[in-house]
Design a protein around this nucleic acid. Structure first.
Lengths: 227, 227, 227, 227
DNA sequence: GATGAATGAGAGTTCATTCAT
DNA sequence: TATGAATGAACTCTCATTCAT
């Protein structure tokens, strides 16, 4: 999982041979476009504004992207790519307990998801535009969600195997553990808060609850599953 | 069902000559408009399509709503209203344990949020358009989120007071308990799945984990809070 | 010239037999319509506003007038009619000098034209809409301008014949004598003045100049026409 | 021609790269728009027709003018500007009698007003639309009427001072002398004549009358003002 | 006759896209 | 490559006209 990922960029760069001159313009446009799309959504975003933000002429966009839709897709793919890099950054270090691993993983995912404006922008675009662009969601799922979920599952399983965690049904729905991060992101997206909310306290409270729910208790426990 | 809420409708209905004649058209338009807006977003939705869906002429919309923006706001308010009614439906019954209460509350919220297409539509609109319509988010927060969060908090506190639950920091962030519902809703919104995902199993797994995390253990517990 | 005119109303009244009940509604509409048309012009006037002003339902207008254009024509004809009555009101009295007659005639025309809001409204409509409704101008010319011009001419000729006035070329362009009245009307129409302007002083100054120009001088005058 | 006026154009031209490139389109639009507005009035004029007349696409208009209203205002201002130039064209030449000056001035104003289709178009627009655009009338008054009136007054006063003209009250209402020009313009505007009317004869007759009314008679004259 | 909700053609305006420079 | 003026399809909104009540 150690991601060589960045080696296969989704957006194909052009003129790979020699200088990647164009790529600069391209990135400039992608970046401006992301800001516009993230702020206003696909339909409401104006290519005029993208161009102005990128300090280029409107026509120039068309030298790099066939049309608005292609630009949009490229923007989302590009951002998913960069999110992926954040997400999968690997700690190198001594092996530790499953609990430790889980804390670390979720903290990292939380940072990548809730504390990262980019990620929130992507989330907004996916929620808003997945009706019109279903394939982007597939990319997102394949590149982000599934690896992320798999990582969580593997830690849970490791904990169970080591007798550190109870065997619980969450193992089959590992995305549940990422729910608070998503909630936080949505919350910040929707509720442009005056008092933005204490993300660290929130995470801390969540982890406390989660670990308590997972950790194997010494004493016999019978039937916390009702019925 | 105990809701007095329906007594103060946000969109003022006009009671013409006894019966609420106009309101019928109004509801018809609101309903068609919701479907269009939820499917395409504010900008991409076409009033032409709204009219066609409602089987009326385009101009008729303007007899009931000043313009697209006003229609949009009315749509969201109307839906928040109806969501509210779902959310606050009250079980009348014998008092039960905090655990029982919590299960019931979260199950209800889960049903209202994740299993309800309306609610997902509202969520999509809020995420997509909160930039352009910040006041709608305020309504949503006031009408839905805050009551919902308060309800969760009160159950947690009741459980703590009764010695049924551990004292945990989640009490300060009760929205965490609703996170899996939101995640499920977002999931379904974004990932228009071929195999849609087992909502009941998901909820069950979550509740198992949650209750385990909250329930007071008989045996001595020392420091599940790390550090 | 003593006008039997009002006996042949241009706008045909309906249900002449028995009660002229409808005519009341008709007049009500004509009156409201005139105000709207005069204030905003044909295109910009809204039948909605006409109806509101007349305190009737919009559809009712169509019971009395086939459509907007017909209503407009009826309005202008109606007003020309009433202007005509003002214009042609006859002084009964002892015969007087041509100068006296001329003063009186022009004073009356001035009052009818410049001091009368109705007349200004008609003028505005004629100027604004004569492109679209050329026939109205013909009515106006036939009913108002030609009689008015003829009256002026006849007084000038009477004065010349009586040796009271010089023989002047104005006799061939009698409308020149009405020019100051028209100018005053246009002035008031266009320049919605803070200090509205002294109409009586204006008329007085004009008549002084005019009479001086027409009156036969005792001394021999040769060739005030240059060259 | 003595006009510095053209040095401060009201509509700001954009001097792009040396020559005034854009201005050409702008003038083209202004000109087509004037014809449409003058023929049909503000409301009835269609931007489609303006575009067609200018042989451009409808959207192009919006590259030069924010909207219809702004275009309209620009059109009127532009035309007032050009009228002004006509109006104020200065004869350079030997000093002559007041009578001569007055003839010349009024002849010029007559030509600018009555014989000039532009001027008639402006007049029509002012009369028709001054209700909706009161500020345009102010511009017209300031730029055209007041200078024109002042010019007439100054000639009258010069004639009085030189003993050439009687002292008359018209000196206080100099616009009276311009009335025949306005009447002629209105006449042509409203009465789209088959036999258009002999403008030169008309002017001639007017000047004859006017000069006779102003000129000092040798013999004693007492009290041509009655009463 | 009177009403006013409903209609839909047609207007102003926007903006993704093109293309001569 | 880069530009930005030009395009025109498509949108929102208006309002004269109709018609069931």
């Amino acid at each position: 999982m150690g991601l060589t990922v960045s080696a296969k960029p989704i957006g194909r760069a052009r003129h790979v041979a020699g200088r990647t001159r164009t790529s600069e313009r391209r990135r400039q446009i992608l970046s401006s476009a992301f800001e516009e799309f993230a702020a206003k959504g696909y339909e409401a975003a104006r290519l005029d504004d993208v161009a102005r933000r990128a300090q280029i002429a409107k026509g120039t966009i068309y030298l790099h992207f066939k049309n608005k839709e292609v630009l949009f897709r490229a923007v989302v793919r590009d951002r998913i790519q960069s999110l992926l890099e954040k997400f999968c950054a690997r700690r190198k270090g001594v092996p530790v307990s499953a609990e430790e691993l889980l804390r670390e993983l979720l903290t990292r995912q939380f940072a990548a998801m809730a504390k990262n404006e980019n990620a929130r922008g992507i989330l907004r675009l996916l929620v808003a535009e997945s009706g019109k662009f279903p394939r982007l969601a597939s990319v997102y799922r394949r590149e982000i969600i599934e690896p992320g979920t798999a990582a969580i599952r593997s830690v849970i399983e490791k904990g169970s195997a080591a007798g550190e965690f109870e065997k619980r049904k969450v193992a089959e729905f590992p995305q549940i553990l990422a729910a608070p991060a998503v909630l936080a992101a949505v919350w910040m997206l929707v509720l442009s808060d005056p008092k933005p909310f204490d993300l660290d306290g929130y995470l801390d409270a969540y982890l406390e609850l989660l670990i308590a729910g997972l950790r194997k208790t010494r004493a016999r426990e019978d039937g916390e599953t009702r019925k």
